[in-house]
Each structure stands twice: as C-alpha cells, then as structure tokens.
C-alpha cells in the first residue's frame, strides 16, 4: 500500500518518539494531491512518516465508507485530499465528494467516533508546501489525540460489553 507512495522520497522524521504506532491513511486523488505529495517529496520537504497513502483516481471515487471502515477498524486518522473545487480533472468529482465527506464528518460524532480523526482538504499538484503543511498539521493533531480507541473489540477478543438479550 505504501511502497509506491511519494513520501518514500522524503526524508523521514524519526525524531518524534510518539510517532511509533500511529497510523494515518491518506486517500489522495491521482491528479492533484498525489502530485502535490510527490512535489513535496521531490523538494525534500520534511514530512511526518505515519501517513499511508492510497491513490484514488479522483475524490469522486471516494466512498465515505472508506473513511468509516478505516476508523471503525482502528486507523488513527484519515485524510482525504483532492483537486481544488473547479479544478477536478473530471470536472465535477470533488463537487460530489465534498457533500459526502461533509455529511460523514457531521455524522461520525453521533456514533461516538471523534470527527477530528477525519479531515478532507484540497491540494493541487504544484502545492508541495501546502501539502507539507496539511499533512504535518493533521499528523500533529492525531498525535495529540493519541491512538484510536475504536468501537469495540473484534470478534474473538473479550467483550466487556454485556451481550445478548435485554
């Protein structure tokens, strides 16, 4: 998942001790933000290392359930980034996406999931610096929040919650 990601060309930040174990997944649109991350890497901007990047063709491909599933199964943060509105390679993908992302963002806390663990943003291919800023800020925020407590034990693990019929 991470092998071909542009961050591998950027120098790793090994200094922060609490970096360890934190996992952030980034869904980046192929045409802008993935390029932006690549630009940041080529320019050797210092970036946090806890981001795993999944390349998507366009944020229009972004199913809000990708975010939900990541957070439910214990990812510590999810970052979605695409072309600026009106700059989508496919013209309208991000117009669809932003409604869906915003709906999910407002919905997560109702189910007890901290909405700060999910962020969506727009970064173009030339904005290497902007990418560095976004990813650094988001990573810092996730480190402040610490590991994602998740929604409960997976099957097989001991459940502390009473089970069965009321």
């Amino acid at each position: 998942m991470t092998d071909s990601s542009p961050r591998s060309s950027a120098p790793a930040d090994q200094t922060a001790a609490n970096t360890q174990g934190i996992k952030i997944v980034g869904f980046l649109c192929n045409w802008c933000s993935y390029g932006g991350a690549d630009t940041a890497g080529v320019c050797r901007f210092k970036q946090p290392t806890d981001l795993r990047i999944v390349r998507i063709p366009c944020t229009g491909r972004m199913d809000p359930l990708f975010v939900a599933k990541s957070l439910i199964y214990g990812m510590d943060g999810v970052l979605v980034s695409g072309c600026h509105p009106r700059d989508c390679h496919y013209a309208v993908g991000n117009f669809y996406a932003r409604r869906r992302m915003e709906a999910l963002k407002l919905f997560l806390p109702f189910m007890g999931i901290d909405t700060r663990r999910f962020r969506y943003t727009w970064v173009s291919a030339s904005e290497g610096q902007q990418w560095q800023k976004v990813v650094t800020e988001f990573s810092e925020e996730i480190h402040r929040l610490g590991p994602n407590p998740g929604v409960g034990p997976r099957s097989g693990e001991n459940s502390k919650i009473s089970n069965g019929l009321r």
């Binding site: 359930l65 939900a68 034990p153 997976r154």
Partner: peptide, 20 residues
C-alpha cells in the same frame, strides 16, 4: 465475524447508502 466493528460497519453501510 461477529465483533462490534462488523456491526458498526454494517450500520454505517445502511446509513450512508440511505443518506439523503
């Protein structure tokens, strides 16, 4: 599997597919 994550995800699926 029968864990809580599966149950949450199933309800997220139903909810998000019904959003709007």
């Amino acid at each position: 599997r029968v864990g809580l994550p599966e149950k949450f995800l199933f309800h997220f699926i139903h909810a998000m597919h019904l959003a709007g």
